[in-house]
């Protein structure tokens, strides 16, 4: 039974093909999806998504979003999906430093949303770095 994986961001459809398996960074921890998985909707945390196609495992850094899993397909809905070659490690590190500096300067009690957003930025950048470092 094939498993169809689709990854979309607001800007474009990043990936759409049949794969052997998918590993997702779920909000509660990593999920491994094989064909014929039960119907599931899960929130995603920024992290690493891996899928295997023709024996080759590919990793993508993804942002937060959702995954919808049915028997034969996995739909990923996220605001970021970057492959190894699209990640700029220096820019990611810079983004982390910038966000951390900002985190120190703002009032955490008053700007809960801003804090959450900055933490999210850091998590997304870390996910990028993780992918980059693994492959070099």
């Amino acid at each position: 039974m094939p498993l169809h994986l689709e990854i979309v961001t607001p800007e474009k459809k990043v990936f759409s093909d049949t794969v052997a398996n998918v590993y997702l960074p779920g909000a509660d921890g990593e999920l491994g999806i094989l064909p014929a998985h039960g119907a599931l909707v899960t929130a995603l945390a920024p992290g690493e998504l891996r899928y295997e196609k023709d024996g080759v495992v590919t990793a993508l850094a993804i942002g937060n979003g959702f995954a919808e899993v049915t028997l034969e397909k996995v739909n990923i809905l996220t605001d970021m999906a970057l492959g190894d070659d699209q990640i700029d490690a220096a820019a990611a590190e810079e983004a982390i430093q910038r966000a951390e500096k900002q985190l120190l300067s703002i009032d955490h009690a008053a700007e809960i949303e801003e804090v959450a957003h900055l933490r999210l930025q850091i998590a997304k950048s870390l996910a990028q770095l993780k992918i980059k470092r693994r492959h070099h």
Binding site: D28, A39, L40, V41, T42, A43, F66
Partner: peptide
């Protein structure tokens, strides 16, 4: 469908999106 962590939490995260 099964919702993880929970339908409400998914909704919470989804509506802003």
């Amino acid at each position: 469908y099964k919702f993880e962590p929970s339908p409400m939490e998914v909704l919470d995260a989804l509506l802003p999106l």
